[in-house]
Write a protein that binds this DNA or RNA. Structure first.
Length: 278
DNA sequence: GTCCAGGCCCTCA
DNA sequence: TGAGGGCATGGA
């Protein structure tokens, strides 16, 4: 029903699976080797790897090519973004903080993850650390997702639908702590249509952020993560404890946001990756 | 034991 | 509008 499994190959530039995997935007990628991952997203799955530095290979059902191409942002305006970033890096010089971040994270990309999965993932992320976020989401998918075996024998769990997460009592044992009530509340709102995800996805950045921030458990930072990683708003600039430290330390006179108008979220991602790698 | 993690909510001034 | 405490949990 999903068609035959095929391996698609796409030519890529400024694209590195390992860097993306270590950038804290997706929590369910499973490492299989260098530049090689099993990747579930929503109810889908692929194996992605890089046979050459400028080639991305994706093994999935043949009618999912469009989904995964979009997921990896392959149709986005990265040539334009990187041209701007590189221009500023030359102007600033190699010792400038942003120049070093861009050089270190030169294969970074912002994924287009399913909106609902992103909403839950980043609600869990608040005041939490990445290993625990991953563990909670894995446990949640095992308990409430559907186990799928692909025609090639790969097994994965789908991301749970909203109507399976509406009872906070069911969520115990997932390591969610106080966040369980936030999750079940949001799941109830989505499942009953009070919070229509599709409508949210169609809104512009400002309006969508206002709606998201009205959800208990979603503040400025989590809203920006959802907008950036799950709703395609590359202008979103999430400020967490890591980014806060960099802004205070390196940009006490203000961050030059206007340079990166429309794709500041990508620059934020370069900083996050670079800072954590140091 | 204390501190921290891709923060948010509530209270109080 | 902003500062400060509380919040579940587990690893360092």
């Amino acid at each position: 029903m999903n068609g035959k499994t095929t391996t698609f190959e796409w030519r890529v530039d400024h694209f590195d699976l390992d860097q993306i995997a270590e950038s804290g935007q997706a929590f369910r990628w499973e490492w299989r080797g260098p530049e090689n991952y099993a990747i579930p997203a929503g109810d889908r799955f692929c194996v992605a790897y890089m046979p050459e530095p400028d080639k991305l290979a994706v093994r999935c059902p043949e009618n999912w090519a469009t989904f995964w191409r979009y997921y990896f942002g392959l149709g986005d305006a990265y040539p334009e973004y990187w041209a701007a970033i590189d221009t500023w890096a030359r102007r600033d010089g190699p010792a400038a903080y942003l120049s070093k971040a861009a050089a270190t994270a030169s294969g970074m990309a912002i994924l287009h993850q399913p909106a609902w999965e992103t909403m839950v993932s980043f609600m869990i992320s608040q005041n939490n650390n990445i290993p625990r976020i991953k563990a909670s989401l894995a446990a949640m998918c095992r308990r409430f997702g559907k186990q799928i075996t692909t025609p090639t024998g790969e097994q994965y769990y789908t991301f749970p639908l909203a109507d399976t997460l509406t009872d906070a009592a069911d969520l115990s044992g997932l390591g969610l702590g106080y966040r369980d009530k936030y999750i079940s509340g949001m799941a109830h709102a989505v499942a009953t249509g009070i919070l229509p995800v599709r409508t949210l996805e169609a809104m512009d950045y400002t309006r969508a952020k206002a709606v998201l921030k009205a959800v208990p458990g979603i503040g400025e930072k989590v809203a920006n993560c959802i907008l950036l990683y799950g709703m395609g708003h590359l202008e979103a600039f999430p400020v967490d404890t890591w980014i806060r430290r960099v802004l205070d330390r390196e940009f006490s006179d203000g961050f030059p946001m206007e340079r990166y108008s429309g794709f500041a979220g990508l620059v934020q991602q370069l900083i996050f990756y670079y800072e954590r790698r140091k």
